[in-house]
């Protein structure tokens, strides 16, 4: 039982949750309720897995190629972004009810995955055969020696049994959060979620900003989806991502639409989520002999409890879910 194990278990869930949660922020801050996060994750995971499967089928030696991982992440981001255009078009141009559209996209995504999977690969699951984990044994012998040195725990934590997606997502998360709050476009985008008419009055193109927000949201959800199946589901895409998109939505509300709190919330939730695994390894807890279902319930129950205790002022964007109409006051 060591700290490194706990951290790496926590990260498994934290990373996809936080990046998808940030996707939710981008969309909702621009004024569009993105219930379709789950569907966008499914589509992203699906696109990435198909590309990985096709490439690996032509050259099995690439099953652990990190550049392929990067390409797959990009593809899944593009797929998620494209898919989210369906939502943006309906919500922005046709002023449709965003809750309905989000629900519809959540139904379309698994149907597409299973349909194409059955038609082309004869299976509802797409097993890509990729394994992008980086282990200690993959480094050069001289670097491997560092693991046994006095700073061994450091190398163990950051270089052994890791996925590059973790680092990419953390960097992306920080950059995009800062961009959303400090840049000109980011500020414009947030203004469109608070008061689009006021934003339009100073010359901001609300439609464009909302498209931007929803598209970034889709791309991030796509990345999150592929990162999730790589780290938690043996790079196998299927019709669901275990409700993670909805969880990310919940974490986003939990984090009060604020990237910093969302990251903290995701870490918190990720830690609670791995309690079940940890409990079997700590003798006095496993002595209580509680079933795994108990530990499964804990994260959800604790989140509700924390919500009751903290219930701060809502950071919910004021104009979220309301279609913008030109000339309306």
């Amino acid at each position: 039982m060591d700290a490194i194990f706990i951290i790496q278990q926590t990260i498994l869930f934290t990373i996809p949750l936080m990046i998808v949660g940030l996707g939710g922020v981008f969309s909702e801050r621009s004024g569009i309720i993105n219930l379709a996060l789950d569907g966008e994750m499914v589509i992203g995971a699906f696109a990435g897995a198909i590309v990985a499967k096709l490439v690996i089928a032509s050259n099995p030696a690439l099953a652990n190629a990190q550049w392929l991982f990067l390409v797959c992440l990009l593809i899944s981001a593009a797929a998620g972004a494209l898919f989210s255009l369906l939502l943006s078009f309906a919500a922005i141009n046709l002023k449709a009810d965003q809750t309905i559209e989000g629900t519809a996209l959540n139904m379309i995504a698994p149907a597409i995955v299973c349909m194409i999977g059955l038609l082309s690969f004869n299976s509802e699951r797409i097993f890509s055969g990729a394994n992008f984990v980086i282990l200690k044994s993959s480094y050069s012998p001289s670097f491997q020696q560092a693991f046994d040195g006095p700073m061994g725990w450091f190398f163990d934590l950051f270089f052994n049994n890791i996925y590059i997606s973790t680092y990419i997502i953390v960097i992306l998360y920080v950059l995009l959060s800062v961009w959303l709050y400090k840049s000109k476009i980011g500020t414009h985008l947030r203004a469109c979620g608070e008061h689009p008419q006021a934003a339009a009055s100073v010359g901001i193109n609300v439609y464009r900003m909302r498209y931007l927000g929803a598209t970034i949201s889709g791309a991030l959800a796509g990345i999150g989806g592929f990162a999730y199946i790589t780290t938690c589901a043996a790079t196998t895409a299927e019709s669901s991502v275990g409700g993670l998109g909805f969880l990310a939505l919940a974490i986003m509300i939990f984090g009060n639409w604020n990237p910093l709190f969302i990251a903290l919330g995701a870490v918190f939730f990720g830690f609670l989520k791995c309690l079940g695994v940890l409990s079997s390894q700590i003798s006095w807890i496993s002595a209580a002999n509680l079933p795994s279902y108990f530990y499964n319930i804990i994260p959800y129950a604790v989140v509700i409890l924390v919500l009751i205790l903290t219930r701060s002022k809502s950071g919910c964007p004021k104009a979220e879910g309301i279609p913008y109409e030109k000339g309306e006051r």
Binding site: G243, L249, A250, Y300, I304, L307, S314
Partner: peptide, 14 residues
Amino acid sequence: FGINEVITCIMTNW
């Protein structure tokens, strides 16, 4: 408590 029903519904589902 004014807590968004979407989040609590998702949690209570699981």
